[in-house]
Nucleic acid binder design. Structure first.
Lengths: 214, 214, 214, 214
DNA sequence: TATGAATGAGTGTTCATTCAT
DNA sequence: TATGAATGAACACTCATTCAT
C-alpha cells in the first residue's frame, strides 16, 4: 500500500530472512515472502534480481556489519585476564549475533550444502579473524605472557569449533531448547555461560602466565 | 534392472541420504534420487510412502543405531580419569558419527527449521543421555569423586554445546575446512582433537576429586 | 533526461520498430524498448496507449509513406520499355523499402499470424496497386501495346508473388544471406538484380508488342 | 486420457506446429498447446525439454523429410525441357510443402528474427541444393545444353528469391489471399502457376539452347 | 513530460505423487 | 517388483500496464 521505496525493500529483506530461517532457502516460497511482507510478488523482483540474490545480499550485509563490529573491538585494549572485559566482550558479541540469529540459521544450513562456493560460515570466521584483528590479538596475548604456540591454524580451529560454533549453536537452538526441555530462557543462558566459561574461557585462562607461574 | 528387492530399497535410502545432505531435504529431488539410484521413480513410492517418510526412516534408523552404540558403552566400566579410555571412547564415537556424517548434515538442517516437531538433534541428544546411561554416568562419576552439582540440566547443556555440537560440527565441516583452508585432513584432525582436549576434556578432568582434594 | 517531447516519442517509435523486427512483436519487451530508448517505461504509455497501438502506428505511417511514394511515381510518364526508366523506378522503390526493412520484417511476421485482421502486407499491396495507380498502369501498358489479358487478378497475383515478395525477401534476408553464404553485399545485390531481371522484368518485356511483333 | 505414448507425443507436436504457426513461437502458450492437445501441461515437458526444443525438433524433422524428398527426385531423370516433367516435379514439391505449410510459416518468422543462428530457411535451401543434388542438376543441365554461367552463387540466389520464396509465399498466403481478395482457391492456384510459369519457368526455358536455336 | 514504485495475470517450467500395466 | 506415462499444484520469474508524484 505504502508507496515508500526504502520501506518496501527493507520489509522484503526482513521477511525473506525470517522465511529462509524458518523453512530453509529451498523451502521458502517467493509467494509466501510477498504475502507476509504485504507486497506484490513482482515487487520483490523489482528490488532483487532473484531469490539467490536476496540470499547473497543478506550474507554480504551480515559480513559487513560483523566486520564493523570486529574493527570496533580491536581498537580498544584487549585484556583476556580481565573477567569484566571478557564478559563485556561476550555480551556485545552475543547481542550482535542474537539480533541476527535468523541469518545464522540460514548461514549454517547453506554452509552444509555441497557446492563449490565457500561456506558462508567460513566467510564469517574470516571476518572475525581478519589479518589485522588476528595480529592484534596475537600480539596482545604475547605481551600479556600467553603461552602461544604461534600456530594460527590451531587458533583458528580452536576458536571455530569451541567458541564460535558453540555460541552460534546456542543462539540458534536456545528457543527450541527452552521449549522442548522446558527450561526458562534466562536460566538456560546462565547454564550456557557456565558451560562456555568452564570450557572455552577456562582454556584461555589456563594459558595465562599468571596461572602458569602463579 | 536388478530384481533384487532389498538392494533397490537400500540403494534408494543411501542415495536419498546423500542427496538430502548435499542439497538439503527441500533442495533434493525425487527425480534426482531415482536417477542416481538407477531405479524407476515410481519404485521409490513402492518402498516409501513419501519423501518425508524417507527422512523419518533415516532419522529413526540413526537413533536406533546410536542407542545401540550407547548401550554398548555403558555396559563397560567408565573411567573418565583414564586417558586411554577417553581416547578409545572418543574414537569409537567419532567413527560412528563419521560413518553417518551425511545424516548429521541433514539432522542439523532439519533441526533448524521452524515447526512444531522436536528437532531431531534433540532426539539424538536424548538417545545419548537416555535415562539409564545418564544415571549410570552420574553414579559412576560420583563414585569416582567428581564434584557433581547434581544438576542434570547443566550436564545436558554443557555436553550438548561443548561436546556434541563441536564434534558434529567438526565431522560435517572437516572436508570443506580442509579444502578451503588448504590443510591436510590428518593434521586437521589432530588440531581438532587438541582443541577438544584443551577445552572439553580439560573441563572434565578439572572436575576430578584429585583436582579438588589435591 | 532530455525534455524534448518530440524526440522521446520518435526515439521510442524507432526503437520499437527495431525491437519488433529483431525479436518479433511478441518477443519484444516494453522494458527493453524503454531501456534501449533511454526513457522511462511509463513514458511509453504517455505517448502510446499500448504495445499494439505502437504497432498500428508503425503500419499506418508506413502505408501513408508508401502511398505518397506511389502517387509520385504515377504522375511521371511510365515507360516499361525503357530500361533506364525501369532501373530508376527499381532503385527508388528499393531505397524506400531498404530504409524500412525492419518494418517489412514486422509486416511479414504479423501477416503470417492467424487472426481476423487483414494481413498488413496485403494492405501494402493495395497501396501499391490502389485504384488510380493500377488504372494508370493498365492504361499506359495498353497504350504501349502490351498484351494485357485485362485480368487484374492475374496482375495482382503475378506482381505480388514474383515482384513484391522476391524484392521484400531480398531486402529482409540480404544481411543474413551475405553473412551465412559469405558473399559481398554489392555482389549479392547484383546477383539479385540479375535474377529479378531474368525472371520478372523479362516477363514484362516479353509482353511488349515490340518483342512480339519484332 | 489415452495412455498411448506415441500418440500423446505426436499430438503435442502437431498442436505445437499449428500453434506456433498461428500465433508465432513467442505468441504461442504452453498452456494453450496442452489444452488444445488435450494433455496435461507437464506431459509436454515429459516429452520435450523445453518450448525451444519442440521448435528444434520441428525443424529437424522437416529438414530430414525434405532431404528424403530431394534425394528421391534426383534419382530420376531430370528433364527441364519436358513440361510434363516440370509439372509433375512442381506438383510433388508443392504437395510436400502444402502438407507442411504451418512449418513454413514458423520457418519464415523464425528466420526473420535477429540472432546468431542460421535462419532455418537457409537450412532448407541448403537441403534442396545439397552438394549431390546441385551437382546432378548442373550436370544434367549442361548435358541438355543449357547456357549455364557455372556460377553456383547466381543459381542459389535466383532459385531462392524467384522460385523457393514465391512458392513458399504462395503456400503460406493463399488461404488469406483467397479470403481477403475473395477468390476461389483453385482459381488462385491457376493464377499463381501462370505467374510462376511466365517468370521462373520461362527463365529456365530461355536458357535451353534447343528452345532458342530449335 | 517524466519517473520510481507498484500490480494482476500470467509464463515456461518443475515437483511430488499416482496410474495402468 | 518394476516401469513409462500421466497429472495437479506449485514454482520462480516476467509482462504489459497503471499509480502517485
Amino acid at each position: 500500500m505504502a508507496r515508500d521505496s526504502k520501506a518496501s525493500r527493507e520489509k522484503i529483506l526482513a521477511i525473506a530472512i525470517s522465511m529462509f530461517a524458518r523453512k530453509g532457502f529451498d523451502g521458502a516460497r517467493m509467494d509466501g515472502i510477498a504475502k507476509e511482507a504485504n507486497v506484490n510478488k513482482a515487487l520483490i523482483y523489482y528490488y532483487f534480481k532473484s531469490k539467490s540474490m536476496i540470499l547473497e545480499e543478506i550474507f554480504k550485509t551480515f559480513d559487513q556489519e560483523a566486520s564493523t563490529l570486529v574493527s570496533g573491538f580491536f581498537q580498544d585494549q584487549i585484556d583476556l585476564t580481565d573477567t569484566n572485559w571478557i564478559r563485556s566482550f561476550f555480551d556485545t558479541y552475543m547481542d550482535f549475533l542474537e539480533d541476527r540469529k535468523d541469518i545464522l540459521r540460514i548461514m549454517i544450513t547453506e554452509s552444509l550444502k555441497s557446492n563449490d562456493a565457500e561456506p558462508p560460515i567460513f566467510g564469517f570466521l574470516k571476518v572475525l579473524f581478519q589479518q589485522e584483528s588476528t595480529d592484534a590479538l596475537i600480539n596482545t596475548m604475547k605481551q600479556q605472557g600467553y603461552a602461544l604456540d604461534d600456530q594460527k591454524e590451531q587458533i583458528l580451529v580452536t576458536e571455530f569449533f569451541t567458541d564460535i560454533i558453540p555460541i552460534i549453536s546456542y543462539i540458534v537452538f536456545k528457543d527450541k531448547w527452552s521449549r522442548f526441555f522446558d527450561i526458562d530462557k534466562q536460566k538456560l543462558k546462565d547454564l550456557f555461560f557456565e558451560a562456555y566459561k568452564s570450557t572455552h574461557i577456562a582454556y584461555h585462562l589456563s594459558q595465562t602466565p599468571d596461572k602458569i607461574t602463579g
